[in-house]
């Protein structure tokens, strides 16, 4: 091969490798903060939790139905506000959209007390080891993941919700049959 051409190829190759390394470094550094955070469209990570009645709930068992996955705490005011709407709509959409409320790790007494006070009948689980919260990257409460029947995340809502908003969310994930 022409020596000059060979040199050009060589230089191009070396520069390409260096550029690749630089771009990769910048990319990994820029995305470090958000790495691992879930987004709409992602597969909802599977988990298993035991509810207050001792029943196990595995997310993948809900395939075919929409899931309203709500992370909450007893001290959180907006959580308290949206719970009655969740209760009402959970009954209305029974069999289509399931509500699964995950407490972020308080005592059984507090959660039970709360559930009784608000007359909640949907399954409530306590994430004692905070593993599920960590997997889902929960920061502010309440955070709600709307999960489609195929197990992908449709929406992530980090705010207290009104009845109409919850209804709209339920509609968006209910199975289409």
């Amino acid at each position: 091969m022409d020596k000059k051409k060979k040199r050009l190829y060589m230089r191009t190759a070396i520069l390409a490798i260096l550029a690749g390394l630089v771009v990769y470094t910048l990319y990994t550094n820029l995305t470090r903060e958000s790495r691992g955070n879930l987004e709409a469209g992602d597969q909802a990570p599977d988990f298993v939790l035991t509810d207050l009645d001792g029943e196990q709930h595995r997310l993948s068992d809900y395939e075919g139905k929409g899931v309203f996955l709500n992370f909450w705490g007893t001290w959180c005011e907006p959580c308290k506000k949206e719970m009655p709407y969740m209760e009402k709509l959970a009954k209305e959409y029974e069999g289509q959209v399931e509500v699964l409320a995950v407490n972020v790790g308080e005592s059984n007494f507090q959660v039970k007390n709360f559930a009784e006070q608000y007359g909640l009948t949907f399954p409530i689980a306590i994430d004692k080891g905070k593993e599920v919260q960590e997997t889902y990257g929960i920061n502010p409460l309440p955070t709600t993941f709307m999960i489609l029947p195929d197990g992908t995340i449709d929406q992530i809502v980090t705010a207290g919700l009104t009845e109409e908003q919850i209804r709209a969310l339920f509609e968006s994930v209910k199975p289409s049959s």
Binding site: I14, L18, L21, V22, T25, L26, N29
Partner: peptide, 22 residues
């Protein structure tokens, strides 16, 4: 030290080292 431009500067030093040495 985590800003893009600082990392870019360090990267430029790396590239300069490789090419100037070669």
């Amino acid at each position: 030290y985590n800003s893009v431009w600082f990392i870019a500067l360090i990267a430029a030093l790396g590239v300069s080292l490789v090419i100037a040495s070669l």
